[in-house]
Design a binder for these strands. Structure first.
Lengths: 277, 277
DNA sequence: TATACTAATGACTAATCGGTCATTTGTCAA
DNA sequence: TTGACAAATGACCGATTAGTCATTAGTATA
């Protein structure tokens, strides 16, 4: 398990230096100080590595945003917190940001394209949720346009973090963008992205958490888990999917048992979505 | 010369389908219906092809924007014209947009990275010029932030054009973004990108048109030009660089002789810059 | 028709790719 | 020390790559 981590880290370095296609398995194993064979003990193929990496690095990012957005609600600060957490992530993980937000080699691999666009859709949902909480029904017509503006701000300003290692004032940036967001939200009158347009421009993505996918996720993790409480929680939740019996409180508790472990953040996140918690 | 054009077109198709590294010279020549040897008669290496492509496709884009921005000034419509021309370009050339704005394989090749960032800097200059004309000194502190917002709008909304072929109302989009730009320009009070910060986040780029580079550009084109007026114009401009003699009007006229020919748009553009016209 | 020249070809090379697998190394309990 | 098992190795494979070059096809002049 540690070996996988090492390979992913070193691969990320190389991908951000040279790109995915241009980086060979040889180079990755050399930087790791392991043999080529050892690589294939951890990952079946080079593609499997990059799929794992996308999951690993983007899950963190999405979960961070979602936690900020659904966390304790303070209208005055939520936008600032939102932008701060995003750019803090860009600052801390500029290598993965460079690879996953800019490298669209992935566009050529259909599976990865769907994965990445699914994560992006997840982020869009979080932003929309935030806008609904912040501006209530003041923002009916222009909701999606404001979301696109926020995404635009992110993309545009992220470049500064990705391509330079200057010390930057995150607080000031967050304030500046929060102000812009408020201005846009309150003053925009001409929408472009209408409610009818949304389904057409939405990227192909797994709309909801599929039952089978979730079951498979549980099965994968049950076999590797050694901690008895976590394994039992996984078992019970798996049974609950196939045969609902327990109350919401119990299910939430089981999910929280998993959420403690950073490795289970994602499974907790999608489980909560599946059970509507 | 036509062969080069053919190769660039087909290569663009393949790059936008599969990415640069994943596309082989073999595939390009197959799609062109020519032999592998013929490819190497037009381009010395695969890298030279992609460098030529960047020049060819980005030059057009930059020149378009610059012409709109420096064209007849009507405060009411300039922003709308600006956005319309940009998204029209994204619509018409979604393949090259996909390749050059999203494929950052190029980031790994230093020469290309510099080229692309130089073109981006060129675009930034055009936007700043437009903002200065539009808002005069109302926009001192927040000029660069507004520019970043505009770039953000472009990046965010461009996705819709790049990844879907829906019929979209360009006029409505341009109006919507023009409104947003005005709102941001008039209401933003908290800057992030200050005048001092600019040189640090500016990408490495050829700041001004270098004399030697321009001379070389002229020499390359003089030998291939058959039309006597164009060749003489090139000759005279080349002499003018080394030994200034003529008045601005004459120089401008010579440049206009070249500008008629689409193939000389770029040389006209950089010459005008060099002679401050 | 013969000659001279350029344009175009595709078999070829050396290098590198992702991936495999017989073999070696390391680590236990007995 | 031995035997059993897992972890790790790197030589090796077939496929593919960018790039070369001796050869051929096509064309214009004499």
């Amino acid at each position: 398990m540690l070996k996988k981590q090492l390979i992913m880290e070193k691969a990320l370095e190389l991908f951000s230096e040279q790109g995915f296609e241009a980086t060979s398995v040889q180079q990755i194993t050399e930087r790791c100080g392991i043999s080529k064979g050892a690589f294939y003990l951890s990952f079946k193929t080079k593609d499997e590595l990059v799929i794992s990496m996308v999951d690993h690095y983007l899950q963190k990012f999405i979960i961070d945003i979602d936690q900020v957005v659904r966390g304790a609600y303070n209208k005055e600060t939520i936008l600032i917190e939102f932008y701060k957490s995003i750019f803090q992530a860009f600052k801390d993980h500029s290598a993965s940001a460079r690879v996953f937000f800019n490298e669209k080699v992935f566009l050529t691999k259909k599976e990865l394209f769907h994965k990445i666009t699914a994560y992006e859709a997840e982020m869009s949902k979080s932003i929309i949720y935030m806008l609904e909480q912040l501006y209530k029904d003041k923002l009916q017509e222009t909701k999606y346009d404001v979301m696109y503006c926020i995404k635009g701000f992110m993309k545009s300003y992220a470049e500064i973090f990705i391509f330079s290692d200057m010390p930057l004032d995150l607080e000031q940036l967050a304030k500046s963008l929060a102000e812009k967001t408020n201005i846009i939200a309150y003053h925009t009158t001409i929408p472009f992205i209408t409610e009818e347009l949304v389904p057409f421009i939405a990227k192909p993505c797994e709309q909801d958490v599929s039952k089978d996918a979730l079951l498979q996720l549980f099965e994968q993790n049950i076999v590797n888990e050694e901690d008895s409480i976590k394994r039992e929680s996984l078992e019970l939740l798996k049974q609950e999917i196939e045969n609902p019996t327990y109350s919401t409180a119990i299910i939430k508790g089981l999910i929280e048992n998993l959420r403690i472990d950073p490795a289970y953040h994602w499974i907790a996140y999608v489980s909560a979505k599946y059970f509507n918690i």
